[in-house]
Amino acid sequence: MSAPLLSIADLKVRIRGNPQARLLRGVSLSIDRGETLAVVGESGCGKSLTSLAVMGLLPDGLEKSGGVIRFDGADLPVTDNEAMRKVRGRRIGMVFQEPMAALNPVFSIGDQVAEVIHEHEAVSHAAAMARVVDLLTQVQLPEPARIIHEYPHRLSGGQRQRVVIAMALACRPDLLIADEPTTALDVTVQAQIMRLLHDLQDDMGIAILLITHNLGLVAQMADRVAVMYAGRKVEEATTRMLFAAPQHPYTRGLLAATPRPGRRRPGEPPLTEIPGVVPAITEMPSGCRFRPRCMLASDICALEDPPFVDGVACHRAVSRELVP
């Protein structure tokens, strides 16, 4: 059996100079070539931070304090910015959350996409621009020969997102990290963007790490799902198994909070919410971090953080008390 394309083992990230302020607490994930792994959870659970750690783009003041990140069989030099410049864009592409923030307003679309190509390949400007037109065609933008001369503010949100995808795919990477790729887009455009990513994956054979709040997208796109809470993975399963028989109370809460128009049972409330909020890094509870919000919490949950066993980190699930 071949090794995973991307393997993250026991990844830890903390605030520099404060060992107790742990933002990621031993995250382990893997993704195979051509596979889609979705990482889900509420805002603040560590999804985007995990992807930034993989790209070597941690914000100032944060540092990787433990763990190993391997890509295509070799350690990824995430703390060496010059070495990572050879990987970013060429081997690993990333679609950031907000396309307007990811594009420079003073440069044309063509120049911005071509810059990715020039960074990694010795090609003429004319050849790079011809590639850009092909890329914009590939992401289904109309009139690509015209759009290369446009500026970001002249495009719609969906068009800008397609440009960001084109930039991420410019050098045909092996892995695409898509961080909330449909944020702020209407439902119709969301569907178009996800269909586009699916078609591009089939065509190019890339792996996709999909970070999202949208469980509907997860059901359509992902092969496997990892659920994160308060900087830790609390459950992982195939998409089919996770939706059919979620094991962690947090996962069950996320699924219950998903709108299901026309599919509610008689007497069922229109929407269920998980009480409380993700705890601040300075106010983490003892034991299981989800304990204050969990309807199934017991004494042991306050004493120790549950180990990750058989795809779930939950004392009740481990002891077989949590049944579908």
Rank of each mutant, 00 (worst) to 15 (best):
L135M: 06
R88Y: 07
P249A: 01
A297D: 02
L196K: 02
F107P: 05
A244M: 05
L215Q: 10
S2W: 01
R91H: 14
L197T: 00
S48D: 11
D80W: 00
G216H: 08
R154C: 07
L11G: 00
R320D: 13
F290T: 06
R260G: 10
P152R: 02
E236H: 12
L135Y: 02
L196C: 02
H248N: 06
S30R: 15
M84P: 06
A244Y: 04
L175S: 08
L155C: 10
T36L: 03
L200R: 06
T238A: 12
P306A: 14
D32R: 15
P144F: 08
P307G: 03
D179V: 06
P292R: 15
S51A: 11
R195G: 09
E283P: 09
A297P: 02
L242K: 05
T137Q: 07
Q190K: 07
S319V: 09
V40C: 08
L242E: 07
V123A: 15
K47Y: 09
V189E: 01
L24V: 08
A170M: 02
E268M: 04
I206V: 14
L242M: 07
A74M: 08
N81K: 14
A102S: 15
D75H: 09
L175I: 07
D111I: 07
Y229S: 03
G34A: 13
D60S: 13
P246V: 03
G17E: 08
P261D: 02
T137M: 04
V13D: 12
D72H: 04
L197N: 05
D223G: 10
P181W: 00
T272P: 06
G73A: 02
Q112E: 09
M204D: 01
E98R: 15
L322G: 13
E143K: 12
V78K: 11
Q112N: 07
L254V: 11
Y250S: 05
T238S: 15
V164Y: 00
P275F: 09
V309S: 10
Y151S: 13
A130C: 04
D203F: 14
E63N: 11
L169P: 00
F107T: 12
L176Q: 09
R25Y: 14
E150N: 11
E304M: 01
P275M: 01
A3P: 12
M100P: 12
Q138K: 11
A128S: 14
N104H: 14
D179A: 06
I147W: 00
M241T: 15
A178G: 03
A102P: 03
R293I: 14
F243R: 12
D202N: 15
V234G: 06
P285G: 14
P19A: 12
L271D: 11
I208F: 15
F96L: 11
S28T: 07
I92K: 05
L185P: 15
R146H: 07
G46I: 14
C294K: 03
T282P: 05
Q247D: 06
L155W: 00
R265K: 10
P152D: 09
P259H: 06
V187R: 10
A230D: 05
R16D: 15
G44C: 03
V189K: 00
H120T: 07
D32V: 07
R260A: 15
Q161E: 04
A207Q: 04
I148R: 01
